[in-house]
Amino acid sequence: MKRGRGALVRKDQLARATAEITRLKGLVGKGLYEIGRLLDRVQREDLWREGKFANFDEYVVEAVDMSRTNAYQFMRIARHFNAEIAKRYGASKLEAAIRYLEVTPADERPGDLMAAQIQVRGVRGRYRLVSLHEATAQQIYEAVRLMKGSKRGAKRVPKAFRGRMERLAEKLPQAPTGTRSGERVRVLRGDDGRLALTFQAIPYDELGAFVKALQEHAGGSGADEG
């Protein structure tokens, strides 16, 4: 008897969730977070089984009349952000922000994601730092591609050489507050096999100290490019 009553309760929960999702879908530009939260619950608690669907994806398509892509996107956003953030930035930008978070090393992930500084390319091809709050979804995806490229390059760099770059980073002038995002010195190997360095957040008024650090580093020992 208890099992039968429990099944009825779950069926009612599924029906209510489905009805609410359908209602929220009619609110253009609204309800993103709530839809994601409800879908996440239906999947997490296996409520879709009460509708005799083969799987959760079938429930999404047939009962909610939503694409799998949108459903999982809304669910990811609901898991990472709150209702206010979802309403403020929208699905496209928050999906891009999640992708950025996924390629960021755990020890470098910002506490306030939307305040994180990313590199974006300007109209003249020069890079500048902007916050995720200011960046467009397209700019965030471009930053993700840059980070993925840096990781691929880093994998081909000798471990000993990376250690030398870490020591070099310790000798650089201190970065101005709010300008640093990630490693100060990055080392990549080009398609031709040569190693290249990129530097971040070097204070303009301490370029002399920066050059001195490079000279001392270069004079210390030869670069290991093996």
Rank of each mutant, 00 (worst) to 15 (best):
L129V: 03
S221H: 13
I85L: 11
I118Q: 01
R16P: 01
G31K: 00
Y89W: 13
T136W: 05
A137V: 12
R152W: 09
N55H: 04
R3D: 08
V130T: 13
K30W: 07
R23S: 10
A196T: 08
V185I: 10
E183N: 12
T179L: 09
R180S: 08
T198L: 09
R186A: 07
R194H: 12
A78P: 00
Y33R: 05
K30F: 07
Y127A: 15
S92G: 08
A115I: 11
K148G: 06
Y127Q: 14
Y33N: 02
K11W: 04
G4Y: 11
A196G: 09
R23Y: 12
V211K: 11
A19M: 11
E183H: 12
K11Y: 06
R10Y: 01
R41H: 06
K151R: 15
A218P: 04
V187M: 02
D46Y: 08
A218H: 11
A209E: 13
R37K: 14
H133F: 11
I118G: 00
G220T: 11
A86Q: 02
E20N: 05
E134R: 15
K25M: 09
D40Q: 08
G29E: 08
G220R: 14
A54R: 10
L188T: 07
K25H: 08
G149Y: 06
L188Q: 11
L197P: 04
D224K: 11
R152V: 09
V120F: 04
V103A: 06
R99P: 02
R189E: 07
G111D: 14
A83M: 11
R37P: 00
R180K: 13
V211C: 06
I98H: 06
K30E: 13
R88V: 12
A223S: 11
G190M: 09
S150D: 15
G208H: 10
R121E: 15
F81K: 04
G122W: 06
K30T: 10
R16N: 08
L195H: 10
A201T: 02
E170S: 13
R16T: 05
R128M: 13
V103L: 10
E183L: 13
T198P: 04
A135I: 09
E95Y: 10
E183Q: 14
A7R: 14
K25V: 03
Q119E: 15
R189M: 06
V130M: 09
T104N: 04
D40H: 05
D192H: 04
Y33V: 00
V42D: 01
F210D: 03
R88C: 10
G219M: 11
A78H: 00
R189C: 03
R41W: 04
L24R: 02
G226P: 03
P105E: 04
I202D: 06
V157M: 05
S221E: 15
T198R: 08
R76H: 10
A97F: 03
D205S: 10
A169F: 03
L101A: 12
L39S: 00
E58V: 09
Y89K: 06
F161P: 01
L197F: 12
E58R: 07
Y100V: 02
R124G: 14
E58L: 06
D205G: 04
A154M: 09
A106W: 12
L38Q: 01
R124P: 07
K30G: 03
K93M: 05
Q117T: 06
A96P: 01
